[in-house]
Amino acid sequence: MPEEKYIVETVNLVKRFGDVVALKGVNFKVRVNEIVGLVGDNGAGKSTLVKILAGVYAPTEGEIIIKGQRFKRLTPRKAYELGIVLVHQERTLSENHTIWRNIFMGRELTGPLGFLKISEMRERAQKLLKEIGLKAIPPDFPVKYLSGGYKQGVQITRALCFEADLVILDEPTIQLSLAEVQRVLEYVRELKKRGKSSIFISHNIYHVYPVADKFVILDRGRIVGEFLKKDLTPDDLSHIMISIARTGRVPPEYREINLISS
């Protein structure tokens, strides 16, 4: 795979909310089949950045390049059509409805006059659930009765179903039990096996470390660090994060391996 092949790229992305500048010229890239761990403190701009990629927010300045196409802004539908799926902690699910309905939500298979192809959707959902390791859950099961980890599984299955190329996981492990975290990490690995790219946002570097290929550290609207996993241990990453929180800088001993020159 050529190195310059990016699934998504942002160019000098700026986002202002009134007087608050959430992103201050962010150049963020994700390669094909890469898992990027996007980390940073509260208010660093992680969620703002991914919401721009998912079309939820429009950037104030800058550009988004997806598969070579340049955009000034996206809409959720456009992002969806371009293969970007946002997996949120329970937020993109219609809890009262069944798993199969949730998997196809917004992209229902329909026949003439817009009638739903229910049996086809159920069957496809069942097949996909099986593939991702959720084979035991019937597709007619209402999502509200699933535990947090299973819910993430449903959202990831949805991403697979739509042949998403980039899956954005916004804090997918928050409030999950240890076993459930492992389950979600399995799903993320499964996405990689299938050639997908992911952005994994987490406060907990011990959740993101095992699956990510690269770590991008945001601090107050800027990317201050970019490290390859092979250059770091989880403790190194933790050390860097604490230092950034205190001083706003990457500690000198890590500057050589930082792909962002400061």
């Binding site: 939820v56 539908r77 969806y80 949120h88 993109t92 219609s94 939500m105 917004g106 992209r107």
Partner: peptide, 10 residues
């Protein structure tokens, strides 16, 4: 059921 989700999914 979930207006935000519905919007996010286009």
């Amino acid at each position: 059921d979930n207006r935000i989700a519905a919007k996010m999914l286009g």
